[in-house]
Nucleic acid binder design. Structure first.
Length: 107
DNA sequence: CGCCGATATCGTCAAATTAT
DNA sequence: ATAATTTGACGATATCGGCG
């Protein structure tokens, strides 16, 4: 499983911010759109990267939310464990007390 | 102090799951 | 069937505590 990682241009900065093919074009020859269609190749490319960035943004937020929910879930479970441990402890004490009571009565 | 390992957090991708 | 959402896995980066 290899990853697509091409951020050679600008050393730092997260990769997801700098993937914009539109700005990669040799500046100069641009905007020669055919009059019939308002979908020049650059417009198509722009649209594509716009969509991609939107998708990445959404998934970034989805991942955050997912992790938040998972943490909360784990906390709930841990809390439940604590409660059950306490219940168990008091039940054991109760049982012990009842046993004592019973065997003293038997004499 | 700088270096290291352990741990936590993040963004991304891909696959699984759910909604339309 | 496919669009949308959710989640597990991975790699990159940040943070922290101990050691020399």
């Amino acid at each position: 499983m290899e990853h697509v990682n091409d951020s050679a241009a600008t050393g730092d900065m997260p990769a997801y911010q700098i993937r914009t093919p539109t700005t990669t074009l040799p500046q100069g020859v641009v905007m020669a759109a055919s009059p019939g269609t308002l979908h020049s190749p650059q417009q198509m490319a722009e649209e594509a990267t716009r969509k991609r960035e939107l998708r990445l943004l959404k998934n970034r937020e989805a991942a955050r939310e997912c992790r938040r929910k998972k943490k909360e879930y784990v906390k709930c479970l841990e809390n439940r464990v604590a409660v059950l441990e306490n219940q168990n402890k008091t039940l054991i004490e109760e049982l012990k007390a009842l046993k004592d009571l019973y065997c003293h009565k038997a004499e």
